[in-house]
């Protein structure tokens, strides 16, 4: 989990590919407890520098963006743009996986 400052207190093992595959199959909805815990790690990082989605076309297109590292927060649109929230969610998952494990996810 994370401590009060947001630092990780456990290490995410890059061998947990099954969790990534589970998320790929179903990004929204019921998840196994192990995946839910992994997502809790990903979703509770400090807000500074966090990925989010910029609503680039009303409810039809979302662009990957990142918060500034300092406050007041400023958005930086880094792309790509998505026409599916599921695809956008998966893209962010892969980026965060790499942040947490230091390795790229070997699945698409």
């Amino acid at each position: 989990m994370r401590d009060r400052e947001g630092n990780l207190t456990i290490k995410v093992d890059p061998k947990w590919i099954d969790l990534a595959q589970e998320f790929r199959r179903k990004p929204f909805g019921g998840h196994t407890p192990a995946l839910q815990e992994l997502l809790a790690l990903m979703r509770t990082a400090p807000i500074e520098g966090r990925y989010f989605l910029w609503l680039s076309k009303p409810h039809t297109e979302w662009t990957l963006a990142k918060m500034s590292d300092t406050r007041p927060l400023k958005p930086t649109l880094i792309g790509p743009s998505f026409t599916s929230l599921e695809e956008a969610e998966w893209h962010v998952f892969k980026l965060r996986w790499e942040q947490l494990t230091g390795q790229k996810l070997p699945i698409n």
Binding site: F28, T44, I47, L53, L55, W62, V92
Partner: peptide, 17 residues
């Protein structure tokens, strides 16, 4: 926008404009 927990209890990446 600024809160650390919003994304956790929404269960999805935050969408902002």
């Amino acid at each position: 926008v600024e809160g650390r927990w919003s994304e956790l209890y929404h269960g999805r990446v935050t969408v902002l404009d």
